[in-house]
Amino acid sequence: MEASLAEINGVPGVRGSFICDSRGEMIVSAVATGLDAALDGVGREVTQTMAALEMIGEAKSELDFAYSRTRVVVHDLEKAVLIVLCEPKVDISLLRLTLNVVTTRLKGYRDIQAQLDAREVEKEVLRDDIDDMSWHLLEALGERR
C-alpha cells in the first residue's frame, strides 16, 4: 500500500495521501510526520460524510472538497477510504487517472485486500457525533428514499 501512496504522491501538486478505515482511523499514511492527529480528524469527517450520504441514498464513490488553500480528494475503496491532500491547482484529471489506475491495481492484490478485510468496520453515521436536528433531518431524508 505504501508504494501505491508513493505513486499518488508523485502527481505534481499532491501533498500527501493516506488510507483509513470506514470509521476514519488511519491504516497507512504517506503524509509528513507530525500531522497524524489532524489526519485522524480529517478521516473521521470524511467517512462520516460518506456514511451520511449513503444513509440518505446518495452514496458517492468519490468526493472532492475544495478549500482556499487545500483540496481534499476522497476515493472509496469499499472496505476503506483513500484520502489525498493537494494544492488547490492540482491537475485534477491527472490525479483522477492515477487514482483509478492505482485503486484498480489495489483491488487485485489479495494481501492488501486481506489487510483491509481485517480492518473492515461497518459504515455508519455515529449518533454521538451529530446534533439532534441534523440526525432527524438525515433520518427523514433516508426514509424518503
Binding site: D91, L97, T98, N100
Partner: peptide, 25 residues
C-alpha cells in the same frame, strides 16, 4: 490528462478502461 480522462469516459467496460488509462498514464 484532461483529454485522456474525456476519451476514456467513452469506454464502457471498466476493465478495458482501467487498462487503457494505465497505458496512457
Amino acid at each position: 490528462a484532461q483529454l485522456i480522462e474525456r476519451v476514456s469516459a467513452e469506454i464502457q467496460d471498466a476493465e478495458k478502461r482501467s487498462r487503457f488509462q494505465g497505458i496512457m498514464l
